[in-house]
Design a protein around this nucleic acid. Structure first.
Length: 117
RNA sequence: GGACUUCAUUAUAUGACCGCGGGGCUGGAAACAGCCAUGAGGAAAGUCCGAGCAUCACAGAGCAGGAUAGCUGAUAACGUCAGCCGAGGGCGACCUUAGGGCUAGUGCAACAGAGAUAUACCGCAGCUUCAUGCUGUAAGGGUGGAAAGGCGAGGUAAGAGCUCACCGGAUCGCAGGUGACUGCGAUGCCAUGUAAACCCUAUCCGAUGCAACACCGAUUGGUGCGGAGGUCAACGCGUCUGCUCGGCGCGCUUCGUUGAAAGGUGGCUUGAGCGCAGCGGCGACGCUGCGCCUAGAUAGAUGGUCAUACGCGACAGAACUCGGCUUACCGAUGGAGUCCCUGU
RNA sequence: GUGGGUAUGGCUUAGUUGGUUAAAGCGUCGGAUUGUGGUCCCGAAGAUCGUGGGUUCGACUCCCACUACCCACC
């Protein structure tokens, strides 16, 4: 996958994660914690963290899927609004697997867009 | 009708739209786009056993260490499973069972008790004495988890397997059974418990694990580390700082070292496979025939929204692959069987 | 994937060749001292020894299974 594609890139490096935890702007809700930072490039990047505290493998998988789905809906809205591109890291919390993706989507719209613009 | 026992099966379903993984087809130089079917479990879990597979080691034998422990069978193998035997529980269907050896040796057994692996405190009886002492005995008392098998009768000075019947255990013989063992008879009462204490006996075990391992690619060069140089002119990051300026370091060049560790591909899913039928076997299971192909990711694919139905959906997510075991779990359905109550 | 360890009063630790009663410090409570509080002194309460089975006459200790936490290696 290159920067020319429409989709986002998955953050894999531990260096990128720790950099975002240090330098990123944090947005806290009851469903997730989000770290954002502006980046140069043509697409957004996404990383999801589901720690041991979230629960067993099923719960961790579910929270990862929900966040990814919400972000899939959220991303085109973001691209229309601004020309800037960002790195995102979402950290799941213990309540995340019981929620619906629409709920997380609305939380993203409310909290993140207002913060970035 | 109630109370159970046991063996299986199943684990929300259907449709629409959007999205993900690998696969196939079409278009395209490629990037990619479109279409098609397909995509988590009974435990995928815990990692407690046993194998396959791979690499290394290995003439043969033994020691050490570990595992297992009724018998017969099943199996690739097992600590698993089936049937049976013994023991225990339940009125019963049925369930549970680490179930070799203390007569190979060593160790341990607190407190209590007279005495704990050998004894005589209170007793009982005989002899004797002022008091008491000596001898015999182990029925009774009390202690304890355990006191020379239990109970009754005979017997006796009082007693005792001293003798006898029954029960229990041991040894020997005979019969039945592949065998564990069971039945009968004779002898005859000889010594507690603990080997999930050391240990002994029998059987088994080479080590490491798919991050194994194999291949690709090589000085025109990859990874990490270190030295020297360069430049902050420009840009980014880090650091000094609350901020700005500025400095230093990295990204640049070069030298030395590291020498496949890094990256990619394979391993990676057709297998002791699954389903159905027939045959053999009490059964675990085996044989034959027909049919089927059913995840293969690599920061890790199954999700979302809407609608309908009901009982409103538990435990839970493949990571090389199988056979078990163990643990978690809302329920639903079916087969077989037992006991009790009522009616005919 | 492989291997190892820990769990004991509210907290931090002792204790296990199996033997009656599980020890200590801090903390808590009560008393004494002080004009009051602290320090000091005296006393008390507080533990199903992580959970569930088993072996044994008897288990914190031995064996098995499970739960939670921690660590190491590739």
């Amino acid at each position: 996958m290159s920067d020319f594609s429409k989709k986002y890139i998955v953050i894999k490096n531990n260096r990128d994660f720790s950099f975002l935890f240090k330098k990123g702007e944090s947005i806290v809700t009851f469903a997730f914690v989000c770290y954002v930072r502006e980046r140069r490039g043509r697409c957004n990047r996404l990383g999801i963290v589901t720690g041991k505290k979230v629960g067993n493998a099923v719960k961790r998988n579910r929270s990862r899927r929900i966040i990814r789905e919400a972000f899939r809906l959220f991303e085109p809205v973001l691209k229309e609004k601004t020309q800037k591109r960002y790195d995102f890291v979402f950290v799941a919390r213990s309540k995340t697997p019981e929620l619906k993706s629409t709920k997380i989507y609305s939380l993203m719209m409310k909290n993140i867009l207002s913060k970035l613009s």
